[in-house]
Design a protein around this nucleic acid. Structure first.
Length: 104
DNA sequence: CCACTGACGAGTG
DNA sequence: GCACTCGCCAGTG
């Protein structure tokens, strides 16, 4: 299945447990796409609103929420959803990956 | 077909 | 910690 690259990405994202976060590179690696972190971002960006995937659990390697091209306040929504699952942000607005990063 | 852009990562200074 | 560069792939004009 060379054409369906996003399927692996979606599968991994759906696999992230609540209360944990994963980085784009991490998701890409587990999806069989090492180094293709951009593809993960693109795949999530292509997700429709109301998708069953916990896209809010995916953050960048710095533990920060990446802004999307489309929604203003989209980062706020992500932060609220994460805090709802028990994720906490530090004074710098970042997530302590050492504590909340998903480790399979 | 070519150029630019985009939810990124890692390395360098 | 910040700014810049390169690599990587897909979508759009």
């Amino acid at each position: 299945m060379t054409g369906n690259r996003f399927a692996g990405i979606y599968a991994v994202v759906a696999r992230i447990p609540a209360g944990c976060v994963a980085t784009y590179g991490q998701v890409a690696r587990h999806a069989g796409l090492p180094g293709r972190a951009r593809l993960v971002g693109y795949a999530l960006n292509a997700l429709p609103h109301g998708s069953p995937l916990p896209w809010h659990r995916v953050v960048n390697a710095q533990g920060r929420i990446s802004l999307r091209s489309d929604c203003g306040g989209g980062d706020e929504l992500q932060r609220v959803r994460l805090e709802c699952e028990g994720i906490v942000f530090d004074s710098h607005g970042r997530i302590p990956l050492a504590r909340f990063q998903w480790r399979p």
